[in-house]
Amino acid sequence: MAEASRPTVAVMFGGRSSEHAVSCATAGGVLEAIDRERWNVVAVGITEDGRWVPASDDAQSWRIRGGELPRVAPDERTVLPPRDSSERTWRVQGADGRASALAEVDVVLPLLHGPFGEDGTIQGALELIDVRYVGSGVLASAVGMDKAYMKIVLRAAGLPVTPDVVLAPGEDPDSRRAEIEALGMPVFVKPARAGSSMGISKVSRWSQLAAAVAAAVVHDPKVLVEQAVVGREIETAVLDGPEGPVASPAGEIVTGGGREFYDFEAKYLDEAAVDLRCPTELPDDVALRVADMALRAFQAVGAESLARVDVFVAEDGTVTVNEINTMPGFTSTSMYPRMWAAGGVSYPELVEMLLAGALARPVGLR
């Protein structure tokens, strides 16, 4: 059982999405950064088939080693959250059906990326039992996950976003060929509800379109065909504090090694393929606009706790919002903590601020 003087945080990671391994790697960084004198920590892994299982809280268990991605292993045991809002004790049920206490959980840190975790589903489950958690609520999480609806919300808030065509599940891209070709060449084809650059293709010839759509459908039946934007890839970390959301110094992604864009391998497996510049140099007026757009995007979707907002900055200084990510990659080398480090907030301090903020945030409607 948890010591009375220390709150207990349940770190949740893994999950059913194609970003399972990325979530595990994120957990490794966070588990190392949490102050164990301040927090009792329990680790809850979600297997790729959706089972909640007790997991190691040793950060070393979740490292990417030699290109090998970590995964939550199958387990006969199951973690059971409370049945309703009157309980606080989480339990572990064995294969024999017997359950024992795991911990009285005060706050959850759901380090889940992609569908079945980052999209409002876990957030809704926690809301039902009045458990506090880090991150955005149900609606903001769902909007941030679905790039098509995210753009609808951002456009309504007056923010410039990249032009696109949305292909519904099962829709033949040839039936929308005129609209797609009107976007110009090249285009990017991506799953509407995925992250970590999973399933994204750059199409430089229309003969490549069908294969690109097929690659995206592996991750999501709903697909976005998006106009390419020529410009610098700039990111901003937003942190929701007591006085409201604040923006970090901007960072920049510069790809190399023959890669045409910031794909999955460049993000997680080939450090030489990308240069993460943080902070980056922008003209003062452009830097102010980038920060302003990041905060406006955060507020437009109703985000809470944290988010990373990605934009393109053209040569003439025009800023276009690419997307908002309500649970960004959070390893110690990920852009979100690196941008805050450039702003004077260390990785452990950042984790503490997020946990303390979630613990203080009321449950239910707010």
Results as ranks from 00 to 15, higher is better:
V189D: 04
R132H: 15
V223Q: 10
E37F: 01
V229Q: 12
D164C: 12
A300Y: 07
P7Q: 13
V311P: 01
R296D: 08
D49H: 10
E3S: 07
G120Y: 08
F330H: 04
L269A: 04
D35C: 01
S100Y: 01
D58W: 09
E127L: 08
T333N: 06
R65E: 14
G97T: 03
E32S: 07
D57R: 11
V79T: 06
F116V: 00
A43N: 03
V138I: 15
N322A: 08
E271N: 10
A250R: 03
Q93R: 15
F298M: 09
W52F: 11
P74M: 11
S175Q: 13
E260G: 15
V105H: 04
Y149L: 15
F330V: 05
W340F: 06
V30T: 11
P54M: 09
V11M: 03
E104G: 05
Q299L: 10
I324N: 04
R361T: 11
I200F: 07
D130C: 06
F116G: 00
T326Y: 02
G343E: 06
K151H: 09
L112T: 10
V53F: 05
M185C: 08
G14I: 12
T47P: 00
A43R: 06
D58C: 04
M339G: 01
R63S: 11
R259L: 01
S248T: 04
A43T: 04
A266N: 03
A291M: 05
E76Y: 02
S207F: 00
R16F: 03
V313M: 13
R176C: 13
E179N: 02
G199E: 12
D130K: 14
P163M: 02
M198D: 02
P7T: 06
G29Y: 01
V187L: 10
T236M: 11
S56N: 06
R6F: 12
L167S: 03
S334R: 07
N40M: 08
A360L: 06
T318V: 02
A156Q: 15
S17Y: 15
T162G: 11
V311M: 14
G117P: 13
D119L: 10
A25E: 03
D292L: 09
M293H: 15
R36F: 08
M150Q: 14
P348D: 08
V108P: 07
Y149I: 11
L159I: 14
I129E: 14
V30Q: 07
E304K: 15
L282T: 08
P81T: 12
L31K: 06
T236A: 09
A55F: 11
G29S: 08
S18Q: 00
W90A: 10
G364W: 09
F298G: 05
